[in-house]
Design a protein around this nucleic acid. Sequence first.
DNA 1: CTAATTTACTTCTATAATAGAAGTATTATT
DNA 2: AATAATACTTCTATTATAGAAGTAAATTAG
Lengths: 149, 149
Amino acid sequence: MVSKVEHRDRTGCPIACALDIIGDHWTLLIIRNLMFLGLHEYKEMLETEEQISSNILTLRLKMLQEAGLIASASHPESKRRKLYYLTPTGKDLIHVLVPLVLWSRRNLREHLRIPKDIDHLLESDPQAFLQETLQRLIDWERINLKTSQ
Amino acid sequence: MVSKVEHRDRTGCPIACALDIIGDHWTLLIIRNLMFLGLHEYKEMLETEEQISSNILTLRLKMLQEAGLIASASHPESKRRKLYYLTPTGKDLIHVLVPLVLWSRRNLREHLRIPKDIDHLLESDPQAFLQETLQRLIDWERINLKTSQ
DNA sequence: CTAATTTACTTCTATAATAGAAGTATTATT
DNA sequence: AATAATACTTCTATTATAGAAGTAAATTAG
């Protein structure tokens, strides 16, 4: 939740407290960009199909950093660019997002357009999809986060 | 998403399409009420710690019925009361919500107050927790949905 | 049988959040 | 030196939410 009075002020429910962070229309899409789509820059996230507003994107990136789900580093090739990436807490959401994707596949079939190869892997071996995704994140970090914090 | 322009109009992403239904501050709390807390009536949901407004609760219950995640039936003991319950699509979200609870346990420990017995079961055998939850839902349905739709 | 109460909403208004357009500061390219 | 790219920031109009109050039908109490 992004409002002033958050659920965690009123309840210790693990679902309510998670919703204080990821319970809005945009936050999980940013996590998706970082986790599955390989989008690590502000500009790239502005240009996704869902068309997030620039002010909202800025707010959410700031909130996610304060919540400890993402972090940022300067781009190795340019000072004016910035790289966002998932922290261990953010990456740990893969255990929620892969099941969410599988739920959508089972229940919202008619609305979805999933690339064929990914769709087949989700069907035949979702755990392999999860592991491949995690490995891709590790590889990306090794290449892009050599220097600095 | 609850706004006019929904993600599914712009994208076929399984995460974005799921967020059109469950991506707001209240919807997953209603699912939680039905799935884990045994709350099946409007009044009970109004009285939870999170203090949802009555107009928002009405809107979300209507939306969730239209989306096919919940359904309603008249109370066996009273015509003025109404029972809400999860459809198979709604119950299928258990495969997302249990991982979400486990993510919160791992990453938001300090904010949580989970009953001890449940917390132990989540730690030792989350799959058993999931199965017990599903069984409780089936038992509730057998008792409360004998008649009518 | 009547009056009070309960339940599930509905309506209204003030406040907060979001969308969209436009601008700014810093860095890089031509 | 001028132009462009990147990551924001600011502003305003629209939309959503919170909170208070009201309504209609069903039930209970006296």
